[in-house]
Design a binder for these strands. Sequence first.
DNA 1: TATTGTTATACTCTATAACTATA
DNA 2: TATAGTTATAGAGTATAACAATA
Lengths: 142, 142
Amino acid sequence: MFDLANYLPYLINRAGVRVAAKFTQDVKSENVSVQEWRVLAALSAYGPQRMSALADLTSIDRTTLSRLVTRMEEGGLVLRSRAEDDGREVHISLSTKGSATAGHIIPLAQRYEEIALEGFSAEEAAAFKDMLKRVYANFDRL
Amino acid sequence: MFDLANYLPYLINRAGVRVAAKFTQDVKSENVSVQEWRVLAALSAYGPQRMSALADLTSIDRTTLSRLVTRMEEGGLVLRSRAEDDGREVHISLSTKGSATAGHIIPLAQRYEEIALEGFSAEEAAAFKDMLKRVYANFDRL
DNA sequence: TATTGTTATACTCTATAACTATA
DNA sequence: TATAGTTATAGAGTATAACAATA
């Protein structure tokens, strides 16, 4: 047969789906979707980004991100501007409202991390995160 | 700021998205989507299931699953039948074609697990899977 | 010609609610 | 009334390809 209960991609997917589903409900009060939060989080963590970098950081498809950013721009969460040195590039940055919204959500996000890691020692948590990074890196070339 | 690079939900999401994206390309030759594979895998691992159980096993929304199963039924991958003892329940099972398709994909899926866990010791891999189960369980009540 | 980003299209997924059939 | 599953609808995501603007 097939040992689904110990199949790694399955375990990753179901954990991710569950966390995202719960988070969706909780950020609804901020009128922000999970994808929008991912953009806000990436810009909060790394500052203004080009579209292609933002797509990598958020794991959001480029064409989806383009329209998502348009909606966020219309909602006043982010600013879009052309690069001065290279007219092809677009720089996305947080607006004041976007920063404030991110500031409201970050504590909630941190509570999610605490819930997820309940019962983990600090060493276990660090090892766990490291393993997730290694899995990601193992697919770098593919 | 916000330490995205060590934020657990982010790490889980990006690993899951990357694995699913690569897998999508690879199963295309079997004319099967990732969601369809999840159904095939669940039925291969646990045998015939009711719709609600299958939704839990695959982390697929019930309404999405209902239409997904319709498409798979039309494609000859699964069989849908009413329960004899309770006319409300529907049992989904693999057809001969569905079993054969799953049989083709399972080796590919196992290669994905090997790629994902490259550089992991057996103990690390086991600990990693256990942690993913604990994270999932930590959101049980929410 | 190559790169960056946007738009078009068709299909799928999600979320909510309403609905049918059965218990 | 409650449960199992389906269907309707609107909004959003995905994949592919085509496109404009810039380099």
